[in-house]
Design a protein around this nucleic acid. Structure first.
Length: 233
DNA sequence: CCTTGATCATGC
DNA sequence: GCATGATCAAGG
């Protein structure tokens, strides 16, 4: 039987667990959880995220809720290259496409998920075997006022297009930090959206993603050292 | 090299 | 199908 880790009851407890995780190789994390390391991620793209979830005691499962339900913290593992910057954008949540689903920003899934996030960087150099990749130092983060304003602005612009029937014109180039991209099992997966004349249309499910430049800034700020320390190196 | 659009696994 | 976890792979 695979060990199940109980959910953290406080942010402090979560951070303690995250500290214990830092520096471990994925094979070590997997061993502690009694899980096998797959040869690669091609047929198991979410494996690293689910491994970190298991170690930290995330519990939301497939609910549309932050991963750590009781303390309302979202977990995001973030693949980083040798330079320490993210290699991929970060999925946030699905886009509500159907009529009548528009909410105010503060009630939106994007805001509910991003108001408090534990970012866990994981090495993602393709030349390093999956089992030997190391977990980095986690960052417990909330957006500053500037970031929140920018995210809200992106969200409003994109949701305006969605609700005004301009969904098919949205590309991943819209949005400064938050973008909308397809999020589906395959191109045949369809859901209901709003057409040009307000009528229901069948369309590809979409997701909100954070651009790499945004998560890069989050990590950079978290790891930034005082100028005196940098000069002393 | 980076981003965009497409796709993989799993549970309900 | 929709939610979770994301990365893959091709084109700019």
């Amino acid at each position: 039987m695979r060990p199940t880790i109980s959910p953290p009851t406080s942010e402090t407890e979560l951070q303690e667990r995250a500290r214990a995780l830092a520096g471990l190789r994925l094979e070590q994390v997997a061993a502690r959880l009694g899980r096998a390391v797959p040869p690669d991620l091609r047929r198991n793209k979410g494996w690293v995220g689910q491994l970190i979830e298991g170690f930290l005691g995330a519990q939301a499962g497939s609910l549309s809720e932050p991963d750590f339900t009781t303390i309302q913290v979202e977990l995001k593992t973030i693949p980083v290259g040798n330079n320490g910057s993210p290699r991929e954008s970060t999925y946030v949540c699905t886009v509500p496409l159907a009529r009548g689903q528009r909410t105010p920003w503060v009630n939106s899934a994007v805001w509910r998920k991003l108001r408090r996030v534990l970012w866990v960087p994981v090495e993602s150099d393709p030349s390093v075997p999956l089992a030997q990749r190391r977990v980095g130092t986690a960052v417990l983060w909330s957006p500053n006022s500037e970031q929140e304003r920018a995210l809200e602005q992106d969200w409003e612009e994109l949701m305006d297009m969605v609700s005004y029937g301009e969904l098919e014109q949205i590309t991943a180039r819209h949005g400064q930090f938050l973008q909308i991209r397809p999020k589906a099992a395959n191109a045949r997966a369809l859901t209901s959206g709003v057409g040009k004349h307000g009528q229901p249309i069948a369309t590809l499910p979409r997701g909100f993603y954070l651009r790499t430049c945004f998560t890069a800034a989050v990590l950079r700020a978290a790891y930034a050292l005082p100028a005196a320390t940098i000069r002393a190196r």
